[in-house]
Design a protein around this nucleic acid. Structure first.
Lengths: 146, 146
DNA sequence: ATCAATGTGTACCAAAAAAGTATACAATGA
DNA sequence: TCATTGTATACTTTTTTGGTACACATTGAT
């Protein structure tokens, strides 16, 4: 990665939709998430194309989650917005290592990074929207089985 | 983070110095690491200022590791070059969350990120230059006690 | 039917970060 | 004393991030 602001906003938006569990229009979402409507629209568009939320046009239109909140993870949202999660550029699919001329896993160091990277992804996969939104679930509850 | 190219090069340089265990000049280092001399000089400068390597001017000058290779970790090198390791901007010391107006740990999501982030740093701390350079140590050896 | 409300598509712009280069200078050892 | 090697500072370019603009397409309420 790094996890971008845009992914961060997308997570907030997804949490909001999970919390309210109703169709919300872009304006409402933008206000609740402290971003401009235009920017919210852009992020929402990506989320629609990524089958994370569905949209309704016309009066009383808006957005809602496409799937159940327990079937959406932080990994899903971050990858949708930022693309493949990689802690180092050398780990990304299309990157060619300037040292070895090959891509990921060619250098010893990158193989170590790769182990760490996979672990991060695995952890992000374990965090569901449902857990994030549930007031009875603490950070410790979420992270204890990492 | 993300771990930058520059940090990546710094790691290569440090590995080279650990492997050879002698004073090497910037040109030799640059060639071995497949970067320009100028860029190597820039990175080496940071490493000198960060007390990771020491330098010698004049004829037969060059660089060598300041400390023993077993006392230098990936975390040391990456933090030296890239600054604080943070998987999301919201976790960095001087960042103020646009949602809560506070900094790290204020939002629930960021608290989760923080747990993951600390774990990454902890893993990077466990990888020493000595281990990376030792031909008898495998990636599995390094990562099994993560 | 019509029109206001709402999302769509595409393109553009600006700031920040990353990656790398240039130049003039300072120290040192043969 | 001068070639060799590092120092200091500043600049340039490219890529990524974060965000905006505008003309258009649907659709539900009236």
């Amino acid at each position: 990665m790094r996890i971008t602001q845009e992914a961060d906003y997308a997570i907030r938006i997804a949490c909001l939709l999970a919390e309210r569990d109703q169709t919300l229009d872009a304006n409402t979402i933008a206000e609740a998430c402290c971003i401009t409507q235009r920017f919210a629209l852009k992020i929402l568009r990506k989320m629609v194309l990524g089958d994370l939320v569905c949209s309704f046009k016309g009066a009383n239109g808006g957005y809602r989650l496409e799937r159940d909140a327990k079937d959406i993870t932080l990994k899903d949202i971050i990858e949708l917005i930022d693309g493949e999660i990689t802690i180092s550029r050398c780990l990304s699919e299309d990157h060619v290592c300037s040292k070895t001329g090959e891509n990921k896993g060619a250098c010893f160091v990158h193989r170590v990074f790769n182990v760490i990277n996979r672990d991060v992804v695995k952890k992000l996969e374990k965090v569901t929207l449902a857990a994030l939104v549930d007031p009875d679930v603490s950070v410790e509850d979420i992270t204890k089985n990492f």
